[in-house]
């Protein structure tokens, strides 16, 4: 067995964790506002196909990312309108969103199969990239990797330190009280859903433009569901979402690298380990009696005049 190059390994982990991180941090904000959107997979794949199509057409990966965010956010608004204004069931509508996204993306993506995407340039961080070891490991990535990390910090600061963040949390914890205080519950939730959709779209585009990079029908292959699991694993906290995404992404890459290097590893067990940890976290949360989930999560809200 030969040793694995830890520098390349960390770089690969960041590559594989970024789509999960983007989708999960968006979904976390949605859930903190009290909405359960199970359509992450559908929004991700929409982002993947629209991002790829636009990047190929315009020759710019950055434009692709922007279009992906917009398209997925627009799709998420249909979920928002149905659940928030017409009060449809959130679970059923979310599942419907996933099906719509998968079908729609297959249709849009047909002409783009087998094409090559423009490359997203690595961010030039000047002297930082030239640092030994750390430079190659942490400072040679594309802008979206850093954007995803900044997003976690921004979401954390927003929820913790801003008035708007407090209002969003209030809406998620007790929408009746928030409404009584005069906050626009539906409007705030729609904004959160829009943000969640945009993040999922970015995550999907990262798959089709950077991580794979190509368009293949159904290419998210369950990443959206993993993002949902990460939110639960993180007990709805931003920094723990970061840990969760890197853990889920990291375990996959690590076990593949261990195998490639010829180490004997229990592959099936390692592949399942993030899910086992999620179950353990859930058990731990319930055992402690602390309800980490936003109290109004998934409950419909209707303002009686």
């Amino acid at each position: 067995m030969e040793s694995i190059n830890p520098v390349l390994l960390i770089a690969s982990v960041m590559l594989s964790a970024t789509p999960l991180l983007l989708a999960a941090i968006g979904e976390m904000v949605v859930e903190r506002a009290g909405v359960l959107n199970l359509g992450v997979e559908g929004m991700m794949i929409t982002g993947a196909v629209v991002g790829f199509a636009v990047a190929v057409s315009t020759g710019s990966a950055a434009t692709g990312f922007a279009a992906a965010a917009l398209a997925a956010a627009a799709l998420s608004l249909t979920f928002g309108v149905l659940t928030q204004i017409f009060l449809s069931n959130q679970v059923a509508t979310g599942l419907g969103l996933t099906l719509v996204g998968l079908g729609l993306s297959a249709l849009i993506g047909k002409p783009y199969e087998g094409m090559k995407s423009p490359v997203l340039p690595r961010l030039d961080l000047g002297p930082l990239s030239d640092l030994p070891v750390v430079g190659r490991m942490l400072f040679t990535h594309d802008a979206v990797v850093y954007l995803s990390l900044l997003l976690v910090a921004a979401v954390w600061a927003f929820l913790r330190y801003t008035r708007a963040g407090l209002v969003l949390r209030a809406v998620g914890e007790n929408h009746e009280a928030a409404h009584a205080l005069g906050y626009k519950v539906v409007r705030i939730r729609l904004l959160a859903i829009f943000f969640g959709g945009a993040c999922a779209g970015l995550g999907g585009a990262y798959l089709s433009l950077v991580r794979v990079p190509q368009w293949t029908e159904g290419m998210t292959a369950g990443a959206g569901w993993i993002a949902l699991a990460i939110v639960v694993f993180a007990s709805w906290r931003p920094w723990r979402v970061l840990v969760g995404a890197y853990l889920f992404g990291g375990v996959t890459v690590l076990q593949l690298n261990l195998q490639a290097a010829g180490a004997q590893v229990p592959v099936a067990l390692l592949s399942a380990s993030p899910y086992l940890v999620t179950i353990a976290v859930l058990v731990l949360i319930s055992a402690r009696g602390a309800h980490a989930a936003p109290a109004s999560l998934g409950r419909p809200f209707h303002a009686t005049q």
Binding site: E2, I4, N5, L8, S12, S16, P19, L207, R211, V212, P213, Q214, T216, G218, M219, T220, A221, G222, A223, T252, V253, L256, N257, Q259, A260, A261, G262, V267, A268, S271
Partner: peptide
């Protein structure tokens, strides 16, 4: 030969990761 078991028939992201891991190991 170095063999990587992906435990999936279809998961483009994981298949790409597996290819990358093998290439990084000299394949």
């Amino acid at each position: 030969f170095s063999v990587v078991w992906a435990y999936t028939w279809f998961d483009p992201a994981k298949e790409a990761d597996a290819a990358r891991a093998l290439i990084e190991n000299g394949a």
